[in-house]
């Protein structure tokens, strides 16, 4: 079951990607040019490698901008929404983790992800809670690695 709808070459995607790469290369070069050479004993200085990097990225970007050779098959919009949901839930996890603590936030993010993968809600939640508990036991009790309890419960 492949849900990708578009399989024909999409030079537009490649051109846009090339443009972004080129912009990034220019930004790197501009930023790198502000790195002042500190010592005479260091003839290469801190800007040589970033400038080389920028040159390679610019060449890659220009190639795609003017002679695109990449076929990009984007998935349909429902799938893209699910992907954005997954990435969003990871960022949300990072934000709430210190406050709510490891157990609840991990249970929530794993449940969300398993729903996105089409899992059953109740079984998914139970599995997520069991997994979070097991990870807590493994890392905190066995390996002695601190995981956040949550500032909310500490007051």
């Amino acid at each position: 079951m492949n849900q990708t709808t578009e399989t024909s070459p999409r030079p537009l995607s490649a051109r846009i990607g090339g443009g972004i790469l080129l912009t990034a290369a220019i930004a790197i070069a501009v930023e790198a040019s502000t790195f002042e050479v500190a010592f005479l004993t260091d003839p290469v200085g801190p800007k040589a490698l970033p400038l080389l990097v920028a040159a390679i990225l610019a060449a890659g970007g220009l190639a795609q901008l003017f002679r695109p050779d990449i076929d990009v098959a984007w998935p349909e919009s429902a799938v893209l929404t699910r992907m954005a949901g997954a990435a969003g839930s990871f960022v949300g996890y990072a934000v709430v983790l210190p406050y709510v603590g490891f157990f609840l936030s991990t249970t929530a993010v794993v449940t969300a992800l398993s729903l996105l993968y089409g899992g059953p809600p109740l079984k998914g939640t139970l599995a997520a809670a069991a997994l979070s508990g097991a990870l807590w036991l493994l890392f905190v009790s066995v390996l002695g690695l601190p995981l956040p309890i949550g500032d909310l419960w500490m007051r």
Partner: peptide, 27 residues
């Protein structure tokens, strides 16, 4: 899959968090 993949993801989160104990790394 709905069990395996989220499980892998959770392990990855713990691993990343464990590096510096910072949620900035998760972002």
């Amino acid at each position: 899959r709905w069990f395996l993949i989220p499980g892998v993801a959770a392990l990855a989160f713990v691993a990343v968090y464990a590096v510096n104990g910072s949620s900035f790394d998760l972002v």
